[in-house]
Design a binder for these strands. Structure first.
Lengths: 334, 334
DNA sequence: GTGAAAGCGCTAACAA
DNA sequence: TTGTTAGCGCTTTCAC
């Protein structure tokens, strides 16, 4: 059984391969009569174009790469789901496809896939601002258009979309202050993360505007895991009594914090107030009174994909960015 | 600036393109002296092979496609995360890459991507047994190797990996019975899902062995969403008093159920026992006494990828499957 | 151990 | 409006 190529179709109809190609792509006017004959042959033979060959000849893959964090991390990160859903939805609308690249952990060191050996793509979406550097160099050198999800190290030079993290922590802090909380415990990410800095900035601003200030020990910087959030509270121990509210700067901390509070019978909001940046809805199983700020992961995904396709198709060079506003979620019904 | 191809390298060194190709792939013995010279030139020129051209010539893409459910569904499904992590980890070990295809919702109808127009792959992983049919036909016709994640409609003809769903509901039911629960409310998926049938079978078996039987109304079949689980309980209302335990056959139901219980101040395990198939750890924020069965999503992903690569590389024809045993999770620390 | 060259299957520039 | 054909960049057979 011979393979059915564009040639088979051309021969069967008695036209050139070009005619078939054009009939299929519509990139050139074809007489209706011929077009019809070609389509019929395509159907009868069950011809399917070879996408690789098409990619090679046209230098276009209709595929976008998503570079994400180590698999260990996406494992328990619901944020990732929504982000991915947003990306997929937009790409689908624009008739692009998605190729997924993840980093891997070898012991404690991250292994980044060798981009030059991966499937060719028309553009890339980069998820983790901190690890960017590895990919960024490559993408820039290879002149592959890309959009960073989150704020990159040198924002002025790049396309990126981010949620307004500074505003998020500003709002959250203000919210707590307005409820009468003067002493807030901040659980923040590692100090070398750009987002952590943004959170710090937002919170400090709100405090300052209210004549308060961040004392040493009020803001804890820890890696982004539940366990460490749990441990952090544990090591604060009785010192927690000094605080009337907790602000979790990242969703992943929530489960750890909640678990600690529950274990120690510390009630929200009676004993302590709690607010999280990121929609930790499951926390409401502990207390319905929990407020959070929706960090709009779906929108981030959707808009970053949109920006990327725009960059690709319009061949944009001039960096730009989108900052997505954040919103309160007072309480969410099922 | 001219593009650097294999020809550039060959010309620079003064050898044939074949020599460069072989030096890079190692598929043929090359004298060390020449190999060295070639590598040096590759380095100096910064030559990166064009993967599309390579794919075309070798008819191999080192890429696997994952066909998943509509984006709406992955949006809130943590199961998906672990599954994906497992797949990615295995593929990485085997030096394969992942291409992601999702279905889309247009109103209420699912839209499946036209596979013949998507990126070419060496094999496929299919996630949702119910929607399989659409893909299955195509994959079979195109002779693309694939592995189904979950139990397909006609298991004897396919490669698949699944967790032991029957055993899961059997064990869970038995567990409840052993705790003295004679009247159990089962929240199961739609009746036309293969998994739902397996759950039914497992539960019935356990009941029968204990001289009990499933009365009409004891097992509720609903689509896989939180909302509907919530609504289901709501419409049962006071009738819930007739049951001393709830068994959720799928993780997604948990949040809905928990929310209902909390809102109505029904306590676990004092008022009612609860067990879920799928590790709904956040439920423990409502009650630490909640037991669940780990449905091993990571393993499923990992093993399905493993099987697929095996099928691809060994060109297996004879269908086979792997059933992953399930385990209890009595309580999970943070 | 090495080179020449014929593909891989399609696109698109050029010619008619 | 249609056909011819030279690429796209690499792999691999065949000949030396």
């Amino acid at each position: 059984m011979k393979k059915i190529t564009i040639k088979s179709v051309a021969k069967k109809v008695g036209v050139s391969t070009a005619a078939v190609s054009y009939a299929l792509s519509g990139k050139r006017k074809i007489s209706p009569r011929m077009s019809e004959k070609i389509m019929k042959a395509v159907d009868e033979l069950g011809y399917k174009p070879n996408i690789i060959a098409r990619n090679l000849a046209s230098r276009k893959t209709w595929t976008v790469g998503l570079y994400t964090s180590p698999t260990k991390n996406i494992n328990s990160d619901v944020f990732f789901n929504s982000l991915l859903a947003g990306i997929l939805d937009n790409l689908h609308e624009q008739r692009y496809q998605l190729h997924l690249y993840a980093d891997y952990l070898n012991g404690n060191t991250e292994i980044h896939p060798d981009l030059s050996m991966t499937q060719p793509i028309d553009g890339a979406l980069i998820m983790n601002p901190r690890i960017n550097d590895v990919y960024l160099d490559y993408l820039i050198k290879q002149v592959i258009p890309f959009v960073v999800i989150g704020t990159p190290p040198n924002p002025e030079k790049m396309f990126y979309v981010d949620v307004d993290l500074t505003a998020a922590s500003y709002k959250a802090t203000n919210y707590l202050i307005s409820k009468g909380h003067g002493k807030i415990l901040f659980i923040n990410g590692p100090p070398d993360y750009i987002q952590s800095i943004q959170h710090l900035r937002g919170s400090e601003m709100a405090l300052r505007e209210n004549g308060l200030k961040l004392e040493s020990g009020d803001m804890i910087h820890i890696p982004m895991t539940e366990e460490l959030a749990y441990n952090a509270l544990k090591s604060i121990g009785a010192g927690l009594k000094n605080y009337s509210a907790i602000l979790a700067c990242h969703d992943v901390f929530s489960f750890g914090i909640m678990s600690y509070l529950k274990e120690n019978n510390i009630h929200v909001p009676n004993d302590i107030a709690y607010i999280s940046l990121g929609n930790s809805r499951f926390c409401r199983l502990y207390s319905p009174a929990i407020t959070s700020i929706d960090m709009a992961p779906y929108k981030m995904g959707y808009q970053s994909a949109e920006m990327l396709i725009d960059v690709i198709e319009k061949r944009r060079i001039q960096p730009s960015h989108t900052i997505i506003p954040v919103e309160f979620v007072e309480r969410e019904s099922v």
